[in-house]
Computed example of a mutant assay.
Amino acid sequence: MPVFGLAAVWGGAASPEQAAAVVEGLGALLPSAQSMQLVVAFRDEAGALEVKVEVPGYPRAAVERLGEEVRKSGGTFVELWRLPKAERDALRSRTLAGGTPFAGHEREQAAQELRQHLEALSARGPLPAASTSTSTSAPQATPPAEAPPAPPVARTTSEGESYRATDADPSEPASPDEPPRRARRFAVKLEMEFRTELDFVREHALNISNGGLFVRTAHRPPQDSVVTVDVKLPNGQRLQGEALVVHVVDAPYTGGVGLAFLSDDATFSATLDGYLASLVGEKA
């Protein structure tokens, strides 16, 4: 069963009571969860929560409702599974490293510890700004501490691929020294298989990025369902894991499904990044 990673970050200006209520109410906010694991982490300027929720399919409406509750409480909400693994790992390192794990049924305890930390941040006030001057004049007022800004919102292309919004032109060639942009898609024709609970289908992927791929097929699972994919790469390696149907194109000859990769596995990401890097070299 797929696991979706979600996160929330609250700064000193957030409401401790409302943030705690979000954590306590996770069971009601995500009613289709089969299991849930929490991590609560504290920093000098913020408190953070990661939720790994196991569900049979992507609970889009429930996740949107959870995000709205986090924002109402003054926090920032991030769907971790939408981020490339490198960005996901970096965010975890900055905000969640060393956090305390809680089982799903320990939500009340997790909420209490988060509330206490945010109350301490609120009582302390903002951290003093680092001074670069030796002047003895009174320091300037520092704005209230806020949660870090959210990463760019994930979008869906007309062909169904999930990607991260970027200010850069996605058609602009990437530097050979940089990892492939999530927004950059490559036209390919890769043999692949995907499985649902009812079907086993052999098809071809027509484009790929480090966010997912588009498959032209007459077998089109519904949006937000989860499939198991096995993609054969030209070098003999395989990409095997779960993917989410993020878009369905209903057209007689050009229709298919856009799939977003869900794997949090380092080997999967390394294999995909290596293949995309080879495509960048071919296009150079």
Rank of each mutant, 00 (worst) to 15 (best):
S122W: 15
T100R: 12
P139I: 02
P139Q: 03
P149T: 12
H105Y: 06
L96I: 08
Q112T: 13
A150H: 08
E108F: 00
S131E: 01
A110H: 04
T100P: 00
A97N: 12
H117P: 00
P101E: 09
S133P: 03
E108Q: 01
P149Y: 11
Q112G: 10
L127W: 09
E146M: 12
A97Y: 07
S131M: 01
P101V: 14
T100M: 08
G104H: 03
Q116G: 04
E106Y: 13
P126S: 10
R107L: 09
G99L: 06
A130P: 13
E146L: 11
R124H: 15
S135A: 04
P149C: 10
P152K: 00
T100I: 05
P148N: 06
F102Y: 13
L114R: 02
A129P: 02
E119N: 06
H117F: 04
P126E: 12
P139T: 01
A130I: 14
Q116T: 06
P139D: 03
P101R: 11
L118S: 00
A120Y: 02
E146A: 14
Q112M: 09
L121H: 07
A120T: 06
P128K: 13
P128M: 14
E146V: 12
P144N: 05
A110N: 05
A103T: 15
G99K: 04
Q112F: 07
F102L: 10
E113G: 03
R107N: 10
T134V: 10
Q109Y: 00
A120P: 00
A110S: 07
A150E: 14
S135G: 01
T132D: 11
T132F: 12
S133M: 05
Q116F: 03
T136H: 02
A123M: 12
G125D: 09
E108S: 02
R115K: 08
H117G: 00
G99W: 01
A97K: 13
H105R: 02
R115E: 12
P128S: 14
G98D: 15
T142R: 11
E119P: 05
P143H: 01
E146K: 10
P143R: 04
G125Y: 07
P143D: 03
S131P: 04
P152H: 02
T132K: 05
Q140V: 09
P126A: 11
Q109F: 00
T100L: 09
P144V: 06
L114E: 07
A97I: 05
L96M: 14
P149V: 13
A150N: 06
P151S: 02
E113F: 04
R124E: 15
A130N: 10
L118K: 02
A141E: 15
S131Q: 04
Q112S: 12
P143M: 04
P143L: 04
A130L: 15
Q112W: 07
A150D: 09
A110Y: 01
L96Q: 10
Q109W: 00
S137T: 01
G125I: 10
A103W: 15
E106T: 12
G98N: 15
G125V: 08
P128T: 15
S122H: 14
E106Q: 14
S135H: 01
A103I: 14
P101F: 03
L127T: 13
P126D: 10
E108W: 00
P139K: 03
T132G: 08
L96C: 05
A150V: 05
Q109E: 13
R107S: 13
S137M: 03
P139C: 02
A145P: 07
